[in-house]
């Protein structure tokens, strides 16, 4: 799914998949931090975004 989104021109770093157990609080924090850093670096999303006007 990530591959197809990338194929359509959505940046790969915008979509993430992870497997986190409910007991892995620190892993959750780490993953969220990593994701937000990557997405922040890309800037606001412009693809597949609905604009209401």
């Amino acid at each position: 799914m990530g591959n197809l989104l990338e194929h359509m021109g959505v940046e790969k770093d915008r979509i993430h998949f992870s497997w986190i157990s409910s007991a892995e609080a620190t892993k959750f924090v780490d993953v969220v931090k990593e994701i937000s850093d990557k997405v922040r670096a890309l800037g606001p999303n412009t693809k597949l975004k609905k604009i209401y006007s």
């Binding site: 990338e6 194929h7 359509m8 021109g9 959505v10 940046e11 693809k47």
Partner: peptide, 8 residues
């Protein structure tokens, strides 16, 4: 990335 986006 941009070209792909435009294509689709």
């Amino acid at each position: 990335q941009e070209a792909k986006s435009t294509l689709f």
